[in-house]
Structure formats: C-alpha cells, structure tokens
Design a protein around this nucleic acid. Structure first.
Lengths: 232, 232
DNA sequence: AGTCAGAGTTGAACACGTTCAAATATCGGA
DNA sequence: TCCGATATTTGAACGTGTTCAACTCTGACT
C-alpha cells in the first residue's frame, strides 16, 4: 500500500479523496468475496479491510446489495470482452451462440460459489439486483445487445419480426441457463456446458422450423406473447 | 384461548404436548404473516403470539425458512383442492390446463405480497424452499402429478414419450408463470391471468404441431434435454 | 412411590445489516 | 488567512435471525 502514496503534484481532479474511498471499499469487498466467500464478507469486515468505518461504507453504498452490484457489473464486462473471440471468428449461428454462452460459463466460474447468495438477493422482485429491475435495465440492455450481435453477424435466415425479437429470446434462454448453472454442483459446471452444447443445435433447428407454413403462426403468437410480458 | 384448556380425560395420544406446541407456533406464524406481512413476523413476534420462547420455536423449526415451508405446503394443498373443479368438469385439454393454472393464481392471490420474500429465500439453491431441492421433492412430485391428471383426463392425442414427459414440462411452465406472477404488480395480478389465457392456446397448438413429421425430431430432442436436466 | 434420562423450554448472548446524531475534513469565497 | 457551508467520516445503537448452556418437566422403569 505504501507504493500508493500520491505523487503529489499530480492533478487530483480525476480522483478526489471521495472517489479513492469509494474505490477502496469496492476493492476491499472484491478481495473479501474472493478469499472468504459471501458469509465472511460482512460489512464490518469490508470496512475494516478498506480502512474505513462501517458508516462510511454506507455513505457510498446504500446497502450491501448495491455494493454487490459492482461485482455483478464486473462479470458482465468480462463476459462482453470474452465474447469478442467467438463473435469475431464465427459466422455460423450455432457457433456464435455456443461461443457466447460458453464464454459466460467460463467467465462466471470463479464466482459460482458466491453466485448462490447473489442469486438469492437477485430473486426478490423489489431488489435492484433483479435482472428485471429498473436498476438492471442498463446491464440487461447490454446483454441483449450482445445477443443482437450474435444474430446480426450470423448467416441465419429469418422473418423480420422474429429476427428483431430473437435477441431478447436468447437473453431469456441465457437467464434459464444461469438458473440451471446456479444449481449445478458438478465440477467445473460441466452439466451446464453440456446443456449449452445440446441446447444450441436444438434452438437452431427450431428457428429453421419457424419458416414452415404451419409453424409460422404459432411462432408469431409466441413472439407477440413475449413482447407482452417483457419488461420495457 | 381459555376455551382451549384440555378436556383432561381425553386420550392425549394423538396430540401430545409437543405436537400442540408445534401447531401453536405454526398457527401463530400464519396469523402474523397474514396480518402484518413478512417483515412484522419476526421470530420473536411469532414466539410471543404462540406463547412460547424464541428458543422453543427453534426447537421445532430449525430456521425461519422451515417455518415458512408450512405456509408453502398450505398453498399447495389449497391449489390441489381448487383444481378439482376444472379437473372434474372439463375434458378439453386447454380448458383443463387453463383451469388448473388460474386456480393457482386465485389461491395464491392473498399471499402475493408475502411471496416476494418467500421467493427470495426459495431462490437460493441450498435452501430447502427451492423448488428443485431435496426437501421440496414431495411437493414438486405432487404438483407434477396434478398436471399428469390434466393430461390424462383430456382428449389430447400425443406420442407416448411426449405424453409421459408433458406433466413435467407443464410444471416447468407453471414455474415460469410463478416467476412472472411474483413480479406482477398489476391489481389482482391481472397480467398473470392474461398470460395464462394467452399461453394455454399456444401450448395447445404447439403440441398439435409436434405430430408433424418435420417437427417431431426436434420435439424428441427437447424431451431428451429436459429429461437430462430435470431433478430426479 | 421414587428415580432419572431425555424431551421440552427458557432467555441471555452473538454477529449480522443498517441507521443516525455527532464529529471532522474540505474547499471556495471574503 | 480565515470563515462557513457542505462533504465526509465515525462508532455506538437498533432490531434481526440464530445459538446455547442451563433449567424444568415428563413418563417409563424399578
């Protein structure tokens, strides 16, 4: 920490004292979540680790959940980065989708033990951590945007309105996979990876089927239904 | 409460002191959950209302979650009862499914405010309240059995293996509806009722489609996948 | 009737997330 | 340079779910 002592002449405009405190609290929380899991990372321990008082931590984060949200955002960003690899090198729809979904499993793996506790809080409808909440709108939109790139960069042939709605459907698929993943206790979350491997080709075949005359009507209805229930 | 004093000569074999205490704790919890919502129903308040000490409540229920499970079971039973009406009077598949799903919304309505908090606890994978947990196996099996009756008593024509798996799929549908319902803040949960009304005909049409030659293969794969991931 | 192991019961104590009145630090303007 | 308003920081205190050593009661056996 001694190495951190400020080169005083540097303009402090970009990192005021307050910003430093805020960041040190996030950093301390990260360290404790990683090393000791969720239960060890009490607000008192986080404050201690950051070298501030409990009340001060609450000055910057109005609840423990808001502090955890930083963790959540970090996974999102790491996923977006990791997803670049399959998105850059693939044009096949199944390859792109599989790549993006498995990238999430890879990125999230270190957080798996922690995820159960996170998930618990995220499940409460009134929680800002809920994937359907107002506060998560930005993160949700970013995730949907990622799936839009999966679709747009692929050679998939689809009806216009289904193509427009597909990213949101793929996001719902991802939520389902996350739900499974949270409950997956197999080493390395192998079962979730198997689920992805098996789901993707099925999705692909269903989408091809959607062009059949008899099927098309039902698909339109499903799209209409999703549009009805999706948060927006 | 004075009216409760025991007619002493009665054989106490069926309700020992312990059983009475246990029941009075459940009853007190029910009363407080109903009147004051989840936050008011602290373990101390429950114990007070039941006329026992906090520690005693924990002697019978190893956590607040286990106490809540009694609540959960009560909804299940009420749903099973309410579902008898549509199950007795309908042979049309859509009518039966719609009736059973709406019966759930009706039965669960008084618990809606409470459900968010319950849901939060149920979401944690390690929680006994999780619908996928070991402890919930009995309740889960009962719910699937209910959907088996929806299918068996209907005039639905289906391939054998899909028919065998359909109750479990319908249970998953119900879990999805519950997820939506928890987030549904519309008065009387009207949006959830609309969702049921619109979903059921779509499900019906999809099942009819499943007999088409080109579609059948995908359906088989989906069934295989569900079989892979379902808890059992 | 007397005994005693175990069931049942108690309430103080613990650690947690959170709040808040009070203390202190910061910084632009006189 | 000093002032005052505002931003930041403190730690004791609250109510929560949960634990536990100690206590009382019950009922089966001598």
């Amino acid at each position: 920490m001694a190495a951190r002592l400020a080169t005083v002449t540097e303009t402090p405009s970009r990192s005021t004292k307050a910003e430093q405190t805020r960041q040190s609290i996030i950093d301390a929380a990260m360290r404790l979540f990683r090393s000791g899991g969720y239960d060890q990372a009490t607000m008192r321990a986080i404050a201690d680790e950051a070298g501030v008082s409990v009340g001060n931590a609450y000055y910057y984060f109005s609840s423990k959940e808001h502090l955890i949200q930083a963790y959540y955002d970090q996974i999102q960003h790491a996923h977006a980065d990791a997803a670049e690899i399959p998105l850059a090198g693939e044009t096949d729809f199944t390859g792109r989708l599989r790549g993006v979904l498995l990238a999430w499993v890879d990125v999230a793996e270190p957080y798996h033990e922690f995820a159960g506790k996170f998930f618990k809080n995220a499940a409460e409808p009134s929680s800002p951590l809920s994937p359907f909440s107002e506060e998560s709108a930005a993160a949700r939109e970013a995730a949907i945007q990622l799936h839009r790139r999966v679709v747009d960069g692929s050679d998939l042939k689809l009806a216009k309105d289904l193509r427009a709605e597909l990213p949101e459907l793929l996001w719902l698929l991802q939520m389902g996979i996350v739900l499974f993943w949270v409950h997956d206790t197999s080493p390395g979350q192998r079962q979730t990876r198997d689920l992805v491997d098996q789901s993707v080709p099925i999705i692909d075949r269903m989408l091809r089927l959607a062009r059949l005359p008899g099927v098309r009507g039902v698909v339109d209805d499903v799209v209409g239904l999703i549009r009805l229930i999706s948060p927006s």
